[in-house]
């Protein structure tokens, strides 16, 4: 057992406990706080598992933006969630346990790659090529194809550039959609002055019917 393995196991256990806590709590503010902890923990796990770029992104996006977005939504809606009906919860538990049991059984297959094993297909198939194109291998004087020291950036920007372009398009589309959804609300509020923005049901329904 190495140092990294022990830290990894402890952090993963805490991550699972946090997920259970999120599932149990009904106060949405508490859930938001716990989801902040959840993303801090998952980012620490990414650092332990050598994915520093992912940890950077998760820190900015998960702990920063998602928390603020959730808080903004809580501000405009309710802060308390109701439990589902008992039958609903029992049904969900049955589905989830069945699925989890099946997945657990699948991991016991002897062909399942062990954690950290360097001989698995994922490690031997494409990745060595990317590393070889960036790192000068041993004593060979063969010129390096891409000179960026960060291999993740190399793959992201050079080899999978269209992927990143598509990602940008997705974000752009989502941003436009959010603006359309929330901009409509502001226009309507201006049309009917004095209406409480988070106000009572009937006024909102009536306003909706006018559209």
């Amino acid at each position: 057992m190495t140092v990294e393995e022990i830290i990894n196991i402890v952090l993963l256990t805490m991550l699972a406990l946090t997920a259970v806590g999120i599932a149990r709590l009904r106060n949405l503010f508490a859930v938001t706080m716990l989801s902040g902890i959840y993303s801090l923990l998952s980012a620490s796990i990414f650092v332990v598992l050598d994915a520093v770029d992912v940890a950077f992104t998760e820190a900015a996006v998960g702990a920063g933006i998602t928390t603020v977005l959730l808080l903004g939504t809580l501000m405009l809606t309710d802060r308390e969630a109701r439990d589902g009906s008992r039958a609903n919860r029992a049904g969900a538990m049955i589905v989830v346990v069945a699925l989890g049991g099946a997945l657990f059984y699948a991991t016991l297959d002897p062909m399942m790659p062990r954690f950290g094993d360097p001989r698995t297909p994922a490690q031997t198939h494409v990745a060595p090529q990317y590393l070889k194109d960036t790192v000068p291998q041993g004593s060979s004087k063969e010129p390096v194809k891409v000179g960026i020291p960060n291999v993740v950036t190399t793959v992201l920007a050079s080899y999978r550039g269209y992927d990143t372009l598509g990602e940008t398009v997705v974000i752009f589309t989502a941003g436009i959609a959010v603006l359309l959804l929330l901009g409509q609300r502001r226009r309507r509020r201006r049309d009917t002055p004095g209406q409480n923005p988070s106000g009572n049901k009937d006024a909102d329904r009536a306003a909706g019917a006018e559209d």
Binding site: L40, A43, V47, V52, A55, F56, A59, A60, A63, G64
Partner: peptide
């Protein structure tokens, strides 16, 4: 990363 975290 730790620096970014301290600020966020």
């Amino acid at each position: 990363i730790a620096l970014v975290y301290a600020l966020i």
